[in-house]
Every structure is written in structure tokens, then in C-alpha cells.
């Protein structure tokens, strides 16, 4: 009997312990639910699941008799589902926020990339411009260098040419100077000879009167122009005339036989007139002077030699005898 009593006691204790265990689990479940619904992090999410879990737990409390293990399990299931639903809602919100951030970042990135691209394009354009300027500058420098080289080459060539021209000019000038000197020497010689010839003029007695003959050296060749040197040295002639101031003077022009009679007559007349004009210029009264061209009609030598022709080309100044 005592054994039965002890067995019964043990069974009662076991049943009571089991019931207390269930009650503890239920209380733990309730505490867990309370902590869960007061968590601000999950407050906005899983509201319907929270309501289901709350209803399940309250049903356990309202249940008559001992709480069943299965019912507790299912109530915990509802609590877990509510937690997961809240976590899911929280994650959805976080994902949405991150998506928004990512979208905003992507937009800003696109804008920044566009700005960077524009900047790099500007940089590239600037670099290209600089390179083009550099190329142009180098081209201009080369061109200048080439022009300078050409200029120097031209200057060198020109210098050579100018030098050669100057040398030629100097040579020509030298020749000119030599020729001029020679001409001057010849002129001096001629003048001197002319002066000597004029000084050596001598008068001769003829039937018409005293005659002084001027050779053709007094005139330019084939011309009636009296040479300047002859004009300057006409003193001998003037002295000769001055010795007979009361007498008439006849000036006869003569030529050689070269050329036509008319030409020679004209030339002899012009030469006689030229001497007359010179004498008048020296102060001889023109009324005293008669100038006659005789042509080739009165030669004093033959006209077959140059020497004879030279003697025939003459002007005779005749101081006529008084009538």
C-alpha cells in the first residue's frame, strides 16, 4: 500500500512538473513575443503575422486545462513566422533604400562621367591644338631657316656676282682710264703738234700778196669746224694779219679731189667762212675780209698720194697787195 502511495505521489509530481514546464515555455514564449513587438527595428513590419502570433499565444493562455505541447509549438511557429515576416519587411526596406542610394549614385556617376568625358575631351582638344601649334611653329621655324639659308646662299652668290661685276667694272674703268689717258696724251700731242705747226707758219710772197697757208690739221676731218686747239693758238696768224692793218684780206678754201666737185666747193667755202668768222671774233673788221671756196680747182700737189692730198686740203690767208 505504501508503495502504491509513493508511486502515485511520484506520478503526481511528474505530471505537475510537466505542467509547470509547459507553463514556463508558455511564459517564455510570451516574453519573447513582448520583446519582439517592442523592438523599434521591426515595429512597422509583419503586422498581420504579429497579430496571428498574438492570437495564438493568447489562445494558449485562454485554453482550459494544461497547455498542449503541440499548441505551444504552433504558437512558436506563428511567432517565428511573424519575426521572419518583420525581418523580411525590414530587409525589403533596406533593399529599397540601398536601391535608391545606388540609383542616386548611378545618376550622379553618370553626370560625373559626362563631366569627366567632357573635360577629357576638352583636354584632348587642347592637347591637339597645342600639338598643331607646335607642328606649325616647327614648320615655320624650318621655313624661316630655309629662307635664311636661301637668303644667305643668294647673298653669297650675289656677293660673288657683285664682286665679279665690280672687278669687271674696275677693269673696264681701268681700261677707260687708260684709254682716256691715251686719248689725253694723244690730244696733248696733237695740240702740241698743232701749236707747233701754227707757230711754224710762214708767209710767202705771191703775185696777189703775202700768203699764209693753214693746213687741214686746223679742221676736223671732212668738216668746217676749226679745232679748239687751233683757235687757242691762232696768235701767229693774228700777228701776221696785224702787221698789215690797212690791207684787205682774202681767204681761199681748197680741198683735195676726193668727193664730188660740189661737195668740195661747198666744203672749201664753209672752211673759208669759218676762218673769216674766227678772225672777226678776234677783232678783225669783217669788211676787210673776203672768203672764197675754191674747191679742188687749185691743187698745189698731186691728188694721187695721201701726202699730196694733205697739201691740197688747205686754207690760204692772203694779205692782198694794195691796188
Amino acid at each position: 500500500m505504501i508503495k502504491h502511495m509513493m508511486l502515485l505521489g511520484l506520478m503526481l509530481v511528474a505530471v505537475d512538473a510537466l505542467a509547470q514546464k509547459k507553463n514556463l515555455e508558455l511564459e517564455a514564449l510570451r516574453l519573447e513575443f513582448d520583446n519582439f513587438i517592442t523592438d523599434d527595428k521591426y515595429r512597422p513590419y509583419g503586422t498581420s503575422e504579429k497579430a496571428q502570433a498574438k492570437a495564438a499565444i493568447e489562445a494558449l493562455y485562454n485554453q482550459r486545462g494544461k497547455v498542449k505541447e503541440h499548441a505551444v509549438y504552433m504558437a512558436r511557429h506563428h511567432l517565428n513566422m511573424a519575426k521572419m515576416a518583420a525581418e523580411s519587411g525590414y530587409l525589403d526596406a533596406q533593399i529599397a533604400a540601398e536601391n535608391d542610394s545606388l540609383e542616386a549614385l548611378n545618376i550622379e556617376t553618370l553626370k560625373t562621367e559626362a563631366t569627366v568625358a567632357r573635360l577629357e575631351a576638352d583636354r584632348a582638344q587642347l592637347l591637339l591644338s597645342l600639338q598643331e601649334e607646335e607642328v606649325e611653329r616647327e614648320r615655320l621655324e624650318k621655313q624661316r631657316a630655309l629662307e635664311l639659308a636661301n637668303q644667305k646662299a643668294n647673298e653669297a652668290e650675289m656677293t660673288q656676282a657683285e664682286l665679279a661685276a665690280a672687278k669687271e667694272y674696275a677693269q673696264a674703268q681701268k681700261k677707260v682710264a687708260e684709254l682716256a689717258k691715251q686719248e689725253a696724251d694723244l690730244a696733248f700731242e696733237e695740240i702740241d703738234a698743232l701749236r707747233k705747226q701754227l707757230e711754224s707758219l710762214a708767209a710767202r710772197e705771191t703775185a696777189d700778196g703775202l700768203v699764209m697757208t693753214l693746213g687741214d690739221f686746223v679742221f676736223d676731218s671732212a668738216s668746217a669746224n676749226i679745232k679748239q686747239a687751233a683757235v687757242n693758238n691762232f696768235t701767229k696768224v693774228l700777228d701776221f694779219i696785224d702787221g698789215y692793218p690797212d690791207r684787205k684780206i682774202r681767204i681761199e678754201g681748197h680741198t683735195d679731189s676726193s668727193g664730188s666737185d660740189a661737195f668740195n666747193l661747198n666744203l672749201s667755202q664753209q672752211r673759208a667762212d669759218a676762218v673769216k668768222e674766227l678772225l672777226v671774233d678776234y677783232g678783225i673788221n669783217t669788211s676787210r675780209i673776203e672768203a672764197i671756196g675754191m674747191g679742188e680747182s687749185l691743187p698745189v700737189a698731186d691728188n694721187f698720194t695721201e701726202e699730196g692730198k694733205a697739201k691740197n686740203r688747205r686754207v690760204d690767208i692772203i694779205i692782198l697787195n694794195q691796188q
Binding site: N80, M81, M84, S88, L91, Q94, I95, E98, N99, S101
Partner: peptide
């Protein structure tokens, strides 16, 4: 089974969130 599916869904969302945070 319902919880396991929800757990898988949460795991996927966590992965998505981590991936998004990496992208950000």
C-alpha cells in the same frame, strides 16, 4: 516547411542586401 522557405527567402534577401551594399 513554411519556415524553411521563409528562411531561404530571408537568406536570399540578405544576400541581395549585401550585394547591393557592395555595389553602393
Amino acid at each position: 516547411i513554411q519556415l524553411a522557405k521563409k528562411r531561404a527567402e530571408l537568406k536570399q534577401k540578405n544576400n541581395d542586401l549585401l550585394d547591393l551594399r557592395d555595389q553602393v
